[in-house]
Simulated scan of single mutants.
Amino acid sequence: MTFTIHRRSLTALLASLAFCGITTAAHAADKDKPLRVVLPVGAGSGVDTIMRAAVPSLTKALDGQAVVIENLPGAGGITGASVIVRAPADGQTIGVVSNNHVVNPSVFKKMPFDAINDITPITVVGATPFVLVVNPSKVPAKNAKELQALLKAKPDGYNYASSGNGTILHLAGAMFMDAAGVDVRHVPYKGVGPMVADIMGGQVEMGVVAVPAVQGQLKSGALKAIGVMGKSRVASLPDVPTMAEQGFPGVDIAGWFAVVGPAKLPPAEVKRLYTAVVAAFSTPETKEAMAKQDNIINPMTPEASLAFFKTEQERYARLVKKANVTAE
């Protein structure tokens, strides 16, 4: 999965929409009521930070309609997603989901909704890059090949952490271990914070994290970046090569985020919301905020987003099966 910024294509898209007379205020369900944006994650998380940065621009793009963020974390995103799928299909309630939305059907035996058929994809907005980090005092490796050699030499000598069993960070770690041909013990944590703290403390040796979550620790030297997990280098880590550059072309994973609505959202509402989100993420203010977080913004059309959801669900199903991941 590769996300790249195509400014010309985005500009052309916006221009064509404007030419056709499509405005973000058109077909508004009820502009006097706020747009409810449900996030299946906690306050202060990556997706939460991203959306709150975009709210002022989104409000303008919606011709002044207020935007209210509602955090509903729990059960790997299932709690919040359940609210999104049950909301009226009137364009007044949308949600922002990430990889876990399409991972969960392969991890949990029973789901309260269908991850594809019970939503209306509006746009996959972009992605946050992941990086494999190690505790430099515990892991002397300087790159992915050296790390692979260490893990093969001492298969029981190292552990890798994640933010929870079956989460995207768990699968990202499993993806590298599989590509490297090593079997390393997985240690799940309840969240990114405790996970990063224990890697720094040496209780576990390594883990995959979103770049914005560890920018400070990488700069101070408390953690060492082994490789970026996507196919493109990260602006804030220009000297850190990708895993593909280091001989692991199959390692391609990032934390994408997408705007969705409940199933059967009217086409007029899909168009209105899609256009507003694209406009909001192309303002100078939002672009600057995204750049500081190393987020890659490249909105997909609703049709492309639906295809992407299906492909990602199939891809993670294979990875979950290969890594033998089950819900705790």
Rank of each mutant, 00 (worst) to 15 (best):
H170E: 15
R233T: 03
G64I: 03
P188H: 12
L265I: 11
P155I: 04
E70Y: 09
G202F: 13
A61K: 06
R7V: 09
F113Y: 15
A197S: 13
T167A: 04
I168M: 14
P73S: 10
R272V: 06
V85D: 01
D32Q: 09
N159F: 08
K264E: 09
N117Q: 13
A289G: 07
A12V: 04
G250S: 02
A179H: 13
F281V: 01
N143S: 06
P262H: 07
T242W: 02
S16G: 00
V211T: 10
P284I: 07
P73V: 13
K109V: 13
P136D: 05
S163W: 03
A61L: 08
A75N: 15
G74R: 13
V134C: 14
V96K: 01
G255H: 02
G247T: 00
K138P: 00
A153F: 09
M290G: 09
G247Q: 03
Q148E: 14
K152A: 15
A244M: 01
R272G: 01
E146D: 14
K322C: 00
L17G: 12
L169E: 12
A279D: 12
A244S: 07
D252C: 00
K154G: 08
F308C: 09
A141D: 10
A244T: 00
E70A: 02
A323F: 07
I226A: 02
V85P: 04
M200C: 11
L306A: 15
L35N: 11
V259C: 00
D156W: 12
N71M: 10
S137F: 10
V41F: 12
V47G: 05
I116D: 10
P140W: 15
G193F: 09
K145W: 09
F3M: 10
P112T: 08
F113N: 02
G164T: 10
K292H: 02
E328P: 07
P212G: 09
V67L: 13
A180K: 05
